[in-house]
Amino acid sequence: MKNLKIRGVWLVLMIAGFYLINFLVGAGVIDSFIENMIVTIGINIILAVGLNLIIGYAGQFSLGHAGFMAIGAYTTAIIVAKLPTTIGFYVSIFAGIAIAVLFALIIGIPTLRLRGDYLAIATMGAAEIIRVIINNLKITNGAAGMFNIPNLASWPTVYILVCVTTIIIVNFSRSRAGRALQAIRDDEIAAESVGITPLKWKLAAFVLGTATASVAGSLHAVYIQTITPGDFGIMSSVSLLIIVVMGGVGSYTGTVVAAVILGVLDTALQSLGALRMLIYAVILILIMMFKPSGLLGHYELSFTKIWDKISSRSNKINPKGEQS
């Protein structure tokens, strides 16, 4: 009963958010400039939440997220060029996921045995290899990139996919898989000794994270309508890492908050040119210095906790009920 109500609260919140944006667009408060910002934030949320699953829950330091985004973006661009319909777009999302998963398995099975920084460097290398291949293929139009991609998605599609991917990843993190991953993250040897196969679960998290990155790439392709291999370099992986660390490693709420703050900041400082990156760098260093665990640390917005607090206050007792 309680769980159902809590899910209801989330559902209502998501629907309310949708209608709020819808109303603001209709009322003209959100112009195309702000809409662009919202969509970029949405795409970054999909990417960063997936990356947070890999880094925060699985404890695997991946620096190659942009490579998988590139796979999704290019798959969509190529399929949609032949099949410029909404159905073509959805087909391309699944095709992109399939290819990204295939690559994630090829890359993940050997490299996920590595630890810490070695894994980071290996995944960065893998993403660069993907980028170099795209840069030299005929079908992807080489370094010039692909342009005039039909615009098949606007903010509602992005909004819905943000909700869907976030629900999938959050539920995955709170399932048996997520608990296994946290055990591996905290102590791999101890986890192994109680019968958890580390490689299997790490690979599962890696594959799920990259699949959502591919979805974000597909959205990026049809919304921005121009993609070049340069869009998916090391620096884009790094900026996703920044979102995750700034929000708090392991906190999905923090990831969303950081993505929104950085997105707004980026748009607000757009007119400043080189100064923009300078300000950005200073803010980044200062946040890391004064709040090393990220803006929200491990905090997670949970209606279950709020519910428990309210009910314990009204009952004047403190029922240690189930927590999620």
Partner: peptide, 8 residues
């Protein structure tokens, strides 16, 4: 991340 910030 701080090192990346210094680099930027």
């Amino acid at each position: 991340i701080t090192a990346i910030g210094v680099s930027y």
